[in-house]
Design a binder for these strands. Structure first.
Length: 160
DNA sequence: GCCAACGTTGGC
DNA sequence: GCCAACGTTGGC
């Protein structure tokens, strides 16, 4: 079971939006970056745990936890000319882009801001700090535990 | 809204 | 296959 950090602009899709899908799963689509695509296609798997990060806001931060509930599968929005992230090069035979499904798990008791991550000497190797533009990034077991502790979840998360 | 970082495209 | 031009991301 692996750990990931998924970034989203809350004005586009927020953690609260995911919470509204409590009884359903939500496709994580629209990823149009090859490195992030490779993770979705090849490595993100059912049961993986996800840090849900809000970017492009005054105080960027990890705000909650989610879980992957479906392995990577072709992102059909790339085939739809009316979709925002339509890609004319994609086809059913060669979908190019991939998505996964996520399930809401729990909010952090305290959000973990980008600023506090940058200030934590234990987290200087986090990709969030070193490669800030990558929208889907692996999180090590070590980083995961530190992040949970910073989020006030050290006593174990309560699943919903 | 600015702009640095960086990913992608396309001419050669 | 290099690299300049261009587009996008995202912190500030």
């Amino acid at each position: 079971m692996a750990h990931w950090l998924f970034k989203t602009e809350p004005g586009c899709f927020s953690f609260d939006d995911l919470k509204k899908r409590l009884t359903m799963t939500e496709p994580w689509d629209g990823v149009r970056n090859f490195q992030a695509r490779n993770f979705l296609r090849d490595q993100v798997r059912i049961g993986d745990q996800v840090l849900f990060y809000h970017s492009n806001i005054p105080e960027p931060a990890v705000v909650g936890l989610a879980e992957v509930v479906r392995d990577g599968y072709p992102d059909t929005t790339a085939l739809n000319p009316n979709a925002e992230h339509f890609d004319p090069k994609a086809s059913p035979d060669n979908p190019i882009w991939y998505m996964v499904d996520l399930r809401y798990v729990a909010p952090l008791k305290k959000i973990v801001t980008l600023e506090s991550i940058k200030q934590n000497p234990l987290l200087t190797d986090m990709l969030l700090v070193k490669r800030s533009r990558l929208s889907i990034q692996p999180v090590t077991e070590y980083e995961w535990h530190i992040m949970l502790a910073m989020g006030g979840m050290a006593g174990g998360m309560r699943e919903q």
